[in-house]
Design a protein around this nucleic acid. Structure first.
Lengths: 206, 206
DNA sequence: ACCTCCCTAGGTGTTTATACCTATTGGAAT
DNA sequence: ATTCCAATAGGTATAAACACCTAGGGAGGT
């Protein structure tokens, strides 16, 4: 766990340079890889979905606000846990941030130990998310090998139709359905219908 | 939708009588069924999981606080959406409430229109939750009809084992497994393995 | 032109699943 | 005791699924 935490990056986006520096100092004393940005746009340009870690985000910034960045990130599918940092005790802002999926919302001045504790929790969540996500991608890639026709057959099989019904439904011979089924079995590397259903349901969105 | 909203109950828990009265007045002017309580314990005693609706909950109260009640309710599986109401702009409190599953967190003094809008949103969520939950209960009740042995067979089938393997795994004859499978099919009212798997996966916790 | 891939489909045979039947054992309830 | 049900298991038969084989037509790329 600590090995992966060292590969993870803590991103810091804050327009206040002294704040960036003091956070960087704190994080590096904990051996956390740190990357700082002075505005939202800079972060967005250098941010890749593959990089794991978490994001410390100042709410109030000139240009794009932290809140806007948070909402942009969530909308664009970036799953990085975001810890919002606010200088002013603004309850509606905190509620809005959490409703938009922020991992946490803390106020300045903050306690160093508390911040670190929340960062570690965020990193742990991110790691868990990424593990799940990579398993999901592995399963999805199996379905990528299927042709359109085979996917049609998969969904009809998963829905509980026997080959005869599938054949009628697609207007083809039951024999051809069996051929498709065999190819599906081989490509998905499964041997029973139950496994097909499990696999298909575990990648709901495909 | 509005018919169901009228069957729903808006619970109000607040130690301040004038606040309870003014909220009740506001809600009843919107034809919302309202039930008020002056403390957390009173609410807990009269609260049943079956009653749909939402809960307006004052954070600061003598005795059990609103925050404690929120956490107690969530821990005991009450799925009522909770709108926390706070007199003091306390960010950590808001964060804690939302992290514990509160639907919203608003501050006094609040705008009547906004409160009503959030209540309606909460009632809608509750209705959606209850619809999902009742479908889930219907499915679960199907599995209740199965014997322990049949459940074992179900899980082995869902895992993708053919009858022969299941028989070896349970130390019984393949013939007996087939009997169990037939009984399972009949009791669950399905006709294919795919349907068993779908049904079983849709009630994960059973 | 040739190769590759996909969809199509038939033949044959094996394995698995499902649908009926009967039957014994044991436990729990009446 | 008798009745009911769960669990066990065998027989027989049909249906479905799966595993091999062959093979033609069409689309796309080299």
């Amino acid at each position: 766990m600590s090995e992966n935490a060292e590969q993870a990056m803590v991103f810091v986006v804050d327009d206040d340079e002294s704040m960036r520096d003091s956070i960087r100092l704190l994080l590096e004393s904990e051996h956390l890889k740190t990357s700082t940005f002075s505005c939202a746009l800079d972060f967005m340009q250098s941010c890749t979905p593959r990089q794991g870690g978490c994001l410390l985000l100042d709410v109030r910034m000139p240009g794009m606000s932290g809140m806007e960045l948070l909402e942009t990130l969530k909308a664009s599918g970036i799953l990085l846990p975001v810890i919002m940092i606010s200088g002013h005790g603004d309850v509606p802002m905190a509620v809005r941030a959490l409703k938009h999926g922020a991992f946490d919302f803390i106020q300045k001045p903050f306690n160093s130990r508390e911040l670190l504790e929340r960062i570690h929790a965020a990193l742990e969540l991110d790691q868990k998310n990424r593990r799940q996500n990579s398993e999901n991608e592995q399963r999805r890639s199996l379905f990528m090998a299927l042709t359109d026709r085979e996917m049609e057959v998969v969904d009809l099989v998963v829905a509980g139709n026997p080959s005869k019904i599938i054949a009628k439904s697609l207007g083809i011979s039951p024999k051809t359905v069996d051929i498709h089924r065999a190819n599906i079995m081989r490509k998905l590397d499964v041997h029973t219908v139950a496994e097909i259903v499990q696999l298909r349901l575990s990648v709901r969105d495909a």
